[in-house]
Amino acid sequence: MASLRFPFVFSRPQPPKPPRHFSKIAAAAATAAAFAAVSSNDRHRLFLQNALNSIFSSDNSLPLWGSLSLADSGAPVVESKTGSSFPSVLEASQKLCGIGLRRKCILGLKNIDVYEFGVYADDKDIKRCLSEKYGRFSASQLKGNKEFTEDLLENDIPMTVRLQIVYSKLSINSVRSAFEESVGIRLQKYGGSDNKELLHRFTSQFKDEIKIPRGSVIHLTREKGHVLRTTIDGQEVGSIQSKLLCRSILDLYVGEDSFDKQAKEDIKFNMVSYLQS
């Protein structure tokens, strides 16, 4: 499924500016208000960093974004363009790290939003695998750091990519064909040309009888031991143990040549914040 990316322009509702001095209770209320007011998919999609920093910057004794997480409030994160929401936590421990959008260009004339995606990871697993190497660095220092991206892909860190279908006319055959192309390219890139059987094992999970209307949810989860588990609307459709396949899937969303490059930076930013929390 060929794709051509275009810049987005998203509006960002501005949260009300609180008084310069306020109590911890008021600070908590302001945080909740900012969470509700700021959309997660604005132009830069920075997920509340700027909103929270602007609220707390007048009082240095209060925490900035670096000590908070997207999941702290427990509230879902709303994607402003489509109006759909993402849970802030999956399976009790995996926290939302970033939201992106997969688009497709039809005949070079029209762009369609195919699906949104959210990337989740357990902060404890991120710390376990990456804190020794990267714990002393700030998010700005790791911006554009390819080695950090490589370690995210290579390490045995449980992660989930949640796909939420936006395009109402999307068929399971289109999903299967899209993965055959995009995952196939990455399997060849990271593992050589002799991976057709592995690719077929993965894509054959998306059987013709499966329906994916708008709002359907697909989870692609890297579990411990580099096991890729695939579920569609909560029903498991397959599980494959393969480090190469796990890496190839995650590369679509957090790799250097990811579907949504701004989302990739958001994901890395928040994972670094988990290292420092």
Rank of each mutant, 00 (worst) to 15 (best):
D260L: 02
A139S: 07
K196C: 09
G144K: 05
A32D: 12
L142P: 13
N41D: 15
Q241K: 15
G135L: 04
S171N: 08
I172S: 00
P13A: 07
L109T: 02
H44W: 14
R103E: 05
S85W: 11
W65M: 13
Q188N: 13
S204N: 00
R214Y: 10
K189N: 09
T203G: 02
K104Y: 01
L142Y: 10
C105M: 12
F117L: 00
V114R: 01
T230S: 02
W65D: 12
K243E: 05
K95F: 10
I185V: 14
I267T: 02
G255W: 03
H44D: 15
K81V: 02
Y274S: 04
I172P: 03
Q94T: 13
R247Y: 13
G234A: 15
L198E: 12
N145G: 06
R20L: 15
R186C: 00
I25L: 12
S242T: 12
A121D: 07
P13Y: 03
A71Q: 05
E79Q: 11
R102I: 01
K207A: 01
I240V: 04
L96Q: 09
Q164F: 05
K264A: 09
F8C: 06
I165E: 05
L62W: 08
P7K: 05
R229A: 01
K243N: 07
R176E: 08
M159G: 03
G135A: 05
S57R: 08
F137I: 13
P158S: 03
K146C: 05
